[in-house]
């Protein structure tokens, strides 16, 4: 990456691109495979899983994401537009106080962040949030 390009392209897109090296983003098939690996192909329902992520990322390298699903055994986070859609899997143990976790993730551009919870009864629920990663620099 040259300095001249960086001069105007702000912290968001360019910085995330620096970490991943565009343009190798996941294909729809990659995403589907990642989901199937977690769900074993089961259908996913909606409701009962809260996914909190900002509508606009302050920094594509550091996007806070929180997931919460009472009654979940495990929750997976996926980034549909990253080189590898897998982001993190939270497996809750017997001493967990709630079925929530929060972390910070990299996003290589605007995309949907997806969370899927595997519930104690073996069912799956899904939620998603569109996150925009912007060049920025023109507010006021």
């Amino acid at each position: 990456m040259t300095a001249t390009r960086q001069q105007v392209i702000g912290t968001g897109l360019a910085a995330a691109a620096a970490f991943f090296g565009l343009p190798a983003i996941a294909t729809a098939a990659d995403l589907e495979e990642a989901i199937n690996t977690f769900t074993s192909g089961a259908t996913t329902g909606e409701g009962g899983l809260t996914l909190i992520a900002p509508e606009i990322a302050e920094n594509g390298n550091n996007v806070p994401v929180e997931v919460s699903a009472p009654g979940a055994e495990a929750i997976i986070i996926l980034a549909s537009g990253n080189p590898n859609p897998n982001v993190a899997t939270f497996n809750f143990g017997p001493a967990s106080g709630s079925r929530m976790a929060s972390t910070r993730i990299r996003l290589a551009g605007a995309q949907d962040v997806i969370a899927i919870a595997r519930m104690e009864d073996g069912s799956f629920i899904q939620a998603s949030q569109s996150v925009r990663v912007t060049i920025g620099g023109c507010g006021g």
């Binding site: 897998n86 106080g97 709630s98 929530m100 929060s102 972390t103």
Partner: peptide, 23 residues
Amino acid sequence: TNVIDVTLEPSISTNPYLQFEAV
């Protein structure tokens, strides 16, 4: 006794941060 067991991928940010709850 396990509270949480997390798998992290390369999409986790530099200086991984995790927040969760225990009883």
